[in-house]
Design a protein around this nucleic acid. Sequence first.
DNA 1: GTCTATAACTCGATAGAC
DNA 2: GTCTATCGAGTTATAGAC
Lengths: 202, 202
Amino acid sequence: MKNLDTNTENKILESAKKVFIEKGYDGARMQEIADLAGINKALLHYYYRSKDKLFKNVFEQTLQSFFPIIAEIILSNKPLLERIKLFIDKYIDILIENPIIPLFIANEVAKNPLIIKDMLIPDIDNLFSGLNDMIDDEVSKGNIKKVDIKQLILNIISLCIFPFISQSIAKMIFNYSDEEYKELMLSRKNEIYSLILAWLKP
Amino acid sequence: MKNLDTNTENKILESAKKVFIEKGYDGARMQEIADLAGINKALLHYYYRSKDKLFKNVFEQTLQSFFPIIAEIILSNKPLLERIKLFIDKYIDILIENPIIPLFIANEVAKNPLIIKDMLIPDIDNLFSGLNDMIDDEVSKGNIKKVDIKQLILNIISLCIFPFISQSIAKMIFNYSDEEYKELMLSRKNEIYSLILAWLKP
DNA sequence: GTCTATAACTCGATAGAC
DNA sequence: GTCTATCGAGTTATAGAC
């Protein structure tokens, strides 16, 4: 059906994604995107009127390739601790495949917070209160101690993402190769889970 | 003695710091720095030959205003757990005062890892082996369980820094004002410590 | 749709007067 | 030391031929 997506338009988007994510909006050059796509600058403007519009496309698509996978796990009907375990495992895997995307997103949102305004999960308040109910439920069963949902989320996300954001520094400090750092990240799956688990123990 | 530091040269550096940290190297404009310093572009080049050299000055000074405070705590001769507690408290305080610096550093280092090459702590290997000995010591005393020093460092740093890197997103998701977010960060001091403590329990 | 050529503009850097 | 004026390279965006 959408076989035409393999054509110029999609090739541009893929190239733009690569360049924007690597260099950021300010550092990216339309010429470089054109070169990578094997076309010339004029065509970029033919398909996406401006650098700004091309960027917004890239940003939105990047974000949307991340959230659904996460949402699926969060919204599954597994027990809380199992969901947390699944989330950590899956998230680390995604980050190993896309190590520089978190920095890209953090950076662009910091420079222009409004860019994300319309892209967030619509009923996020429901999501939070749902998770809160789950926590209360587990607490009443004596499975975990009571914690603030916001701190729980911040803790898990921080432990998963930050080592990727800081990886260029961390690799230098630890004197690690790419492969060694990847191994360290893989071993974090269990470390992070045991950390959260220990904290949640009643 | 260096009363002249209050003069143009220092005013330039302060303005440059502000603009570079906020916009990043690529997004920063010499014109904006000049305007903020109340001078004109030509004078920037008179004091710091190029944008690049001005940036390197800013970056180095920013980094050096961060590391010594941290190093002081890490190298103090307090017991391990006390050092960790002090580190978290002090670090969160610094980050509340300078919330956007971590993103700035992560970003610029990611784009050019070599920039940090000469600025790292010289005998970092000694630092690690020293900390490792401390861990082993506490383990043998039965105070904590054995953990990997790299994971410990990553965990603590992640928990402290990431909420600031992601603060523009987090404030939106949590629907928090600046003040509310600051309160959340302050309350994290104890949360992070109890998290690490629970993990380290033998 | 795709290209070449170029307009229009931004920005870092310099020349030269004071 | 500080300023005004301007150069020249690089960048986004468009015009117009094919």
